[in-house]
Simulated scan of single mutants.
Amino acid sequence: MMAKVFGGAEGSETYRKFSYSVEFLPDRKKRKVTALIRRTSDIDPRHVGRAKAAPSDCFNVHIGKAIALRRALGLAVPDEYLNAPQPTEVRVGDVVEGHAVKDTALVISDDAWPPISGAWVPLKYARQYEFRIIDDSREEVGE
């Protein structure tokens, strides 16, 4: 854990103060996350940080939030965030795409009811046909 430096030169002014709020704006279609830091009494953000997944990488909203926040705070982003290992096994809640068709689908458990809207694929088929994982955030799915 990083120690907070008061009155030092580490990070932006926002990093050294306490009266700020952070809003995260994830955009799964564009595969990016934006962090907006505002003073609690302001409407406009004081600092903005952005993180965007490379086209060949799997998008993960949690890693994106960490990168965007550090950039907004004026802090260095650790290599572990930028070079996080890619997932190797499909799990329930991942978003995948097929090899021949570029449509995306949510992976559901083999015995689950399909969602009311949106494309989906059972876990066994996602594994069998080796679909590529494009988003492993799994925010909506309990494990």
Rank of each mutant, 00 (worst) to 15 (best):
R31T: 00
R31V: 00
V33P: 04
A35C: 13
L36K: 12
I37L: 15
I37Q: 05
I37S: 08
R38Q: 06
R38Y: 07
R39H: 11
R39N: 13
R39D: 15
S41P: 06
S41R: 07
S41Y: 12
S41Q: 10
D42A: 13
I43E: 15
I43V: 08
I43H: 09
P45N: 08
P45L: 07
R46E: 11
R46L: 14
H47R: 12
H47M: 06
V48W: 05
R50C: 00
A51E: 03
A51V: 14
A51C: 12
A51W: 10
K52G: 02
A53Y: 03
A54S: 12
A54F: 07
S56G: 02
S56N: 06
C58W: 03
F59Y: 10
F59W: 05
N60E: 08
V61R: 06
V61W: 04
V61L: 10
V61C: 07
V61N: 03
H62M: 11
I63W: 07
G64V: 00
G64K: 03
K65S: 03
A66K: 13
A66L: 01
A68H: 04
A68C: 07
R70Q: 06
R71H: 04
A72R: 01
A72K: 01
A72V: 02
L73E: 00
L73I: 05
L73M: 09
G74R: 00
G74P: 01
L75E: 07
L75V: 00
A76Q: 11
A76F: 11
A76T: 04
V77F: 00
P78N: 05
P78M: 01
P78I: 01
Y81W: 10
Y81Q: 07
Y81D: 08
Y81K: 04
Y81S: 08
L82D: 02
N83L: 15
A84H: 14
A84M: 13
P85Q: 02
Q86M: 12
Q86W: 08
P87I: 05
T88M: 13
T88H: 14
E89T: 14
V90Q: 09
R91L: 10
R91D: 11
R91C: 11
R91E: 14
V92K: 00
V92M: 10
G93C: 12
G93F: 14
D94R: 10
D94V: 11
D94P: 10
D94T: 09
V95M: 10
V95E: 12
V96E: 00
V96R: 00
V96N: 00
E97A: 07
E97P: 03
E97G: 04
H99F: 14
A100Q: 15
A100S: 15
K102L: 11
K102A: 11
D103N: 13
D103A: 14
D103V: 08
T104S: 15
T104Y: 13
T104W: 15
A105I: 04
L106Y: 06
